[in-house]
């Protein structure tokens, strides 16, 4: 996967300074509303607010296109599905293919929705340090009684940070193992099944070794999976309360007008 996909871009902007919890709540509310939107004007409104927020975030546009790119195939697929499979007034016929006007409209709306979701998500990750996302989630789920299933909110936060840290490392290992296999004469194109099995076995062994070393290093630095503090203190400022207030107003108005 592309390294720039949903990556953090350090900048000093009002969006970067917001508490991760505020941004998480905003992202959730926006996502729900985007998924409910059925009109072009509604989607246009969200697109406009995205452009505005992206401008304030000082993150350059390239970052967002990097987040859209890996999903393009998916978007095209969704669009074509709707275009051809929706009942309605037919645009033209070529053999069994009968795209409809209704399909064109729903397809565009659904695809735009997914694009907006990805864009807002990448705006969130671009303006929030990965660990801050983890800490934010940890604080939001701290009251959930997870003890009963044997883990703590701290475990979950640590797991999230570690995934962010180690998924690229494991992918890199996989790539190196593949190169090693190719250099020893394994033809990947002609024997896909074999190439998968010869790559996966060493990969699992390598991953287990990494996990083992990591666990020992964490234990020796006093990791207990219980209460721990953080280098970054989460603090809700005036801006945060303002944003949350604004969101509440919008939600309230929405239900009132409906």
């Amino acid at each position: 996967m592309n390294e720039l996909f949903l990556s953090y871009i350090p900048k000093n902007s009002p969006l970067h300074r917001l508490d991760p919890r505020t941004k998480l709540v905003a992202l959730m509310v926006i996502s729900i509303f985007v998924l409910q939107t059925v009109t072009f004007s509604g989607l246009g409104l969200f697109a406009a607010s995205f452009i505005m927020l992206a401008y304030f975030s000082r993150v350059n546009a390239g970052t967002f296109s990097h987040s859209i790119q890996p999903m393009l195939v998916f978007f095209v697929f969704i669009f074509l599905m709707h275009l051809f499979l929706t009942e309605g007034e037919i645009i033209f016929r070529i053999g069994p293919f009968r795209p409809t006007f209704d399909g064109l409209i729903t397809g565009t709306i659904v695809t735009t929705r997914f694009m907006l979701l990805i864009l807002f998500a990448s705006l969130f990750t671009a303006t929030t340090r990965p660990t801050m996302i983890a800490y934010g989630i940890e604080r939001m789920i701290r009251f959930v009684p997870l003890k009963r299933i044997g883990i703590s909110s701290f475990d979950i936060a640590t797991m999230m940070s570690l995934s962010i840290r180690f998924v690229p490392v494991l992918l890199d290992n996989a790539r190196q193992i593949r190169y090693a296999q190719i250099s020893r004469g394994l033809d990947i194109r002609h024997n896909i099944l074999r190439s998968v099995s010869t790559t996966i076995t060493p990969m699992i062994r390598e991953s287990l070794q990494t996990a083992d070393d990591l666990a020992i290093a964490m234990e020796s630095r006093c990791y207990q999976g219980k209460y721990r503090t953080s280098l970054f203190e989460l603090r809700m400022g005036a801006m945060d309360w303002g944003v949350l207030g604004g969101i509440s107003c919008v939600v309230f108005l929405f239900f009132l007008l409906r």
Binding site: T131, S161, R165, D213, A217, C222, R228, T229, L231
Partner: peptide, 17 residues
Amino acid sequence: QFVGTTLEEDVAFGPEN
């Protein structure tokens, strides 16, 4: 043995624990 997503976060890991 590098557990943080940045250098300072990694150094903070022990004191946080």
